[in-house]
Design a protein around this nucleic acid. Structure first.
Lengths: 159, 159
DNA sequence: CGCGAAGAAGACAATTATATCTTTTATTGT
DNA sequence: ACAATAAAAGATATAATTGTCTTCTTCGCG
């Protein structure tokens, strides 16, 4: 068990990827995103649909279409993505899965988990979707393998 | 997605429960544990088997048998349970699921996750299996619903 | 010894998460 | 209008997780 579900990992990486592409002025298609973040293309399609329906990203059909992220969405914290995909159980539930766990009837790890949760929540609330654009463009941060590991076909799409 | 898998939640609660019973000198059967922590009885059986095979709890068959926890096991940190059940992906993997994420090739959340992980790790390493015995006995902490919600048959086992 | 109480073990069923495929719809450029 | 492109949507497949059932083995006690 990682912190996020696989779906959520793909979603976060995809959103960072799209944000970065948007910041240099281009829309990106599913194929390019999948290549850019190392994810199964068709599955990613479903995830992007979902994010788009929830208003976390935008999309356009047709030639020159693709996914993009508008200005204000760049300032969304990534906790929104996590909540949209994985729900809020990471932030609200009892660490031991007790429905009735509360201040009055706490489980043994209740107080410890409050700390973990608040650390997580504040981190994910602080980081925004557009925050890493420059580092991603500069190659300082990665959403997949290193750049020179990219398959040769990753440039045929630059229009 | 909660932090731990459901299986792991049951496991931790069960171990706390057994530890507490052991500390007052009795072995406990699967049925009583399941009732004590609100878990499916038969599924719990599998989990306890697994923990027992890994040496995190002990068991005895036959009449007056049941599960118990020996002295030194009481000092085990609960991170051992988590690792046994959920593996160590919570503690070592990249938060965005990138296999090649590292200091040299970090994902955008790499440094933030180091903090989360170390908080989690130290907390789970610090808390021991026997740590809450007194509070559990005293009813200050809970592993299920409040005591007075217990089904009437929970005392028929006191031997 | 032999019965009953318990855990051990393996097969199986249901659910959820993950992934793929196919068809449809919308948009753009010509 | 037409052809090409790209996302949307729905149906289906696979795998992992979670949960149940049945049978077997072991042990303690009379």
């Amino acid at each position: 068990m990682a912190i996020f579900s696989k779906t959520c990992e793909y979603a976060i990486r995809a959103v960072f990827f799209i944000a970065q592409k948007t910041s240099v002025g281009t829309r990106v298609g599913i194929r390019d995103i999948a290549a850019g973040i190392d994810s199964p293309e068709l599955y990613l399609g479903k995830i992007l649909q979902d994010l788009s329906r929830r208003g976390l990203i935008s999309s356009a059909k047709g030639p020159n279409g693709g996914f993009f992220i508008t200005g204000e969405m760049l300032n969304q914290p990534i906790i929104e993505i996590v909540k949209a995909i994985d729900g809020d159980s990471l932030f609200v539930g009892c660490g031991l899965g007790l429905k009735q766990c509360s201040e009055l009837n706490p489980c043994p790890l209740h107080n410890e988990f409050k700390e973990i949760r608040s650390t997580l929540t504040s981190m994910l609330s602080r980081i925004t979707v557009g925050e890493f654009n420059d580092e991603l463009i500069g190659g300082i941060l990665a959403l997949r393998k290193a750049e020179d590991d990219l398959p040769f076909n990753n440039k045929k799409k630059s229009k």
